[in-house]
């Protein structure tokens, strides 16, 4: 984590400090709407980073990360609604169950040599049939959705994640910050190097004596566990969960666009990506609303175009290009 700081030059350090301070102080000036957009951005930083560990560093393309968001959210929300078990406690089984799913998918794929595209298809399949399964789980609301009831008396119980917008904003900030620090640390660790070797060339990694199966399993476990925490946040922030919404393929895609646009396998890529894409999405909604257009799917088409343009202009993502352009990192000779 210290290396993250050391890798930046003076200018980069100043920019980072200013950005963090600006985010910390944003609620002073931001309107409620702006704060909700910033919260959404930070949420996408967090889940994007979780996915980035698995794809950007370990090179395993999951297209079903909505699975872990949904499982995390449903487990914690279900425990709260039915048993009154608060999310700080509920997050533990939520993470455990999501990680167990992740471990099973990983084991199935890596043990039996399901690689590349086939691995991605497997992740989609699991997310999809979990979605269909949840349509039929009565106690969790089935297709009709699970709602966390609004209780006047509980308002402000931040320890049960019943805080207001300001509380969720800072919670998202802490999650996003922690995810960035964790990524920076992992990227420098032995495990991070094993991941990168596998990402670059699995056969070569094996020839160097890297336990490929084990390193890939760790990637799925860490990524799915982290994503599940994001799911708990999601559930208690929005207070409702519908299988058709949370497990949807488009949710998985939405979650991975940030890191791709920002720069895969970089610490700040998912951060920049979320800050670029989320406001664009909000802007699009505002514009179409103003124009009185009701265009479902417009956001997907719009993001598709943005993705194409960015990949065409800066194939490595916005962050590597931006940091070079603004001179924020120490130059590699």
């Amino acid at each position: 984590m210290i290396s993250l700081w050391r890798d930046m030059n003076r200018r980069g350090q100043v920019v980072l400090v200013v950005a963090v301070l600006a985010m910390l102080l944003a609620p002073v000036v931001a309107t409620r709407y702006l704060l909700s957009v910033l919260t959404l951005i930070l949420y996408f930083v967090y889940v994007g980073q979780a996915w980035n560990l698995m794809m950007g560093y370990a090179g395993q393309l999951s297209l079903g990360h909505a699975l872990y968001v949904g499982l995390g959210g449903y487990v914690a929300a279900g425990l709260w609604v039915h048993f009154g078990i608060g999310p700080w406690l509920g997050v533990i089984p939520a993470v455990a169950i999501a990680a167990a799913f992740g471990a099973f998918i990983g084991w199935l794929a890596f043990r039996f040599g399901i690689e590349g595209v086939y691995f991605s298809l497997l992740t989609i399949a699991f997310a999809e049939f979990t979605r269909i399964g949840f349509d039929h789980i009565g106690p969790l609301g089935g297709a009709g959705g699970l709602f966390i009831p609004y209780q006047e008396s509980r308002l402000g119980e931040w320890w049960n994640l019943r805080g207001g917008q300001l509380f969720f904003y800072y919670l998202a900030f802490v999650l996003a910050g922690a995810a960035v620090l964790l990524t920076a640390w992992l990227a420098r660790s032995r495990l991070g190097h094993q991941w990168m070797a596998i990402r670059e060339d699995e056969t070569a990694a094996r020839a160097l004596g890297i336990d490929v199966f084990r390193a890939k399993m760790k990637a799925v476990l860490i990524s799915s566990a982290m994503t599940a925490v994001g799911g708990v946040f999601y559930a208690f922030y929005y207070n409702n969960l519908f299988p058709a919404q949370v497990f949807e393929m488009s949710r998985s895609i939405e979650l991975i666009l940030g890191p791709i646009v920002g720069g895969l396998g970089t610490v700040f890529g998912p951060v920049i990506g979320a800050f670029v894409l989320t406001p664009l999405g909000e802007l699009l909604i505002a514009v179409t609303d103003k124009a009185g257009l009701n265009a479902p799917g417009a956001k997907a088409i719009f993001f598709g175009l943005v993705l194409m343009i960015i990949i065409y202009l800066v194939p490595g993502g916005v962050w590597p290009w931006l940091s070079r352009r603004l001179g924020l990192v120490r130059r590699r000779s």
């Binding site: 670059e200 060339d201 056969t203 020839a207």
Partner: peptide
Amino acid sequence: GQVAEGRQVFPTLTVAENLHMGALL
């Protein structure tokens, strides 16, 4: 150890990172 056919270095990583990856054992 083995030095594989066609060298199999990691082309997008630096020389330092490549060497580091040999010492993960």
